[in-house]
Amino acid sequence: MGITARGAGLLVAAVVLLAAGFRFAYPELTLLGVAAAGAVGYALLVALWRPRLEVTRRADPDRVSRGEPARMVLTVRNAGRLRAANLLAEDRCGDRTVPVPVLRLRPGRDTTVDYDVPTDRRGVVPVGPLRVTRRDPLGLVALARSYSAVVPVWVHPRIHPLTAVPTGAGRSLDGRVDGVPQGSITFDSLREYVVGDELRRVHWRTSARVGELMVRENVDTSLPRIVVLLDNRATAHPGRDPESFESACEAAASVVAAALRADLPVSLLLVAPEGLTTPEGPAGEAAGAGIGPLDRLAAARLDTGDATAALRAAATRLRRDRLGDTLVFLTGPGGRGELGHLGALRGAYPSVVVGVFGATEPAPAGATGIVVVDAADGAAFAAEWDGVRRW
């Protein structure tokens, strides 16, 4: 609740008039003081009335690529039974506010407002809550309340079509690494039986020991597994609002989309995992619980932590876990001199591709067997990527 400047002035005047009226026995001043105090009290009662509003919102769509249109449809319903709602309301959309007219909204009726969501920049645009301001007719008191939760709109990086996809490598049991054109099934883990599983996949010995049916999970080791490592360190992308980071995000989105289109396993990692923004509010937290790789790219931001320690930790994890057979590392001009850290990963990843964005001169190869792609932006990276003949 907030009292306006007019209300504060009238309240001070009421106190002064009442004090002067009682002190000097002027009934006229006392009457004016009572009237002023009564006006402030009436304003408080009017502002305290809480309208019963039901607010629903729908993003159409809630996930778009940068530059594509997106709209927010907002419906406000007066759930009260007696009074019409005549309010000032505004909806938050990112860094701006959108006026929402709620004028003479009778009980049981609703009004719908739709507006464009800005998608000119990659990121997560929080939309909401609806802020309703209740004022008295004299403008003495203003009370603002929030309705509905925050709904995120995910603005993904632009995706540039890639025609080439790494063929991958399959590891045989004797340690050799070969390109495998056809599948080989390898045991991965055990899980509980669910309706629809084939009985020939039941592991009877384990089932007898634990007392319930357990089923073998197999994986196709011949499928190429692609790991995309996005360098989100601020030192790798110097400058204010660097375009090199946006280009790296576009390249990462393009590689991820190409892998998913080819039904290939793909993982997206950030050098500094804490460099992620999360939507605000319960709805945003629920949406952020199961976000995909493109959503993570939308939420990625530059991290200002210890750059060297972050890169070493990422390289250690990649070498220890061996998450795939093709590693794609995307960095900016500030990461040109640190490509040597990737040389130690050649034993774990047969194919290593490095994309450097925004560099003024060609990047060093870093290590034998590493493919280095210098590109000005995401579109140039896509053209260079399709021209690679050796993975």
Rank of each mutant, 00 (worst) to 15 (best):
T75P: 02
G369T: 09
Y26R: 06
A47G: 01
V328I: 15
E361M: 04
D60T: 09
L105P: 01
D114Q: 15
E198G: 11
G239I: 07
A310H: 11
V255A: 04
T221S: 12
A5S: 11
G38K: 04
E68R: 13
D95V: 08
D241I: 00
P364I: 07
V210S: 13
T277E: 06
G292H: 09
T111A: 13
L302Q: 05
R122V: 12
L162M: 08
P265E: 09
G33F: 02
R312K: 07
T360F: 04
L294C: 08
L140S: 07
E384L: 08
F245G: 02
D62V: 00
L311V: 13
P51W: 02
L345I: 11
G305D: 10
M214Q: 15
N218C: 00
M214F: 00
E285K: 05
R346Y: 04
V113R: 14
R233G: 15
L199I: 06
N218A: 01
R71E: 11
L173N: 03
P181K: 04
S172M: 14
F24I: 07
L327C: 12
L213F: 14
A14G: 14
S351A: 15
A149S: 13
D178H: 13
R176N: 09
G211V: 11
V98D: 03
A47S: 07
P238N: 05
P181V: 07
V76N: 01
D116G: 07
P224E: 05
V354P: 10
L10T: 07
L48V: 05
D241F: 08
V34P: 03
D120R: 13
L140E: 01
V15M: 13
A169Y: 11
R346E: 03
A376S: 13
I3S: 02
T56K: 00
R121Q: 15
G128Y: 03
L31P: 00
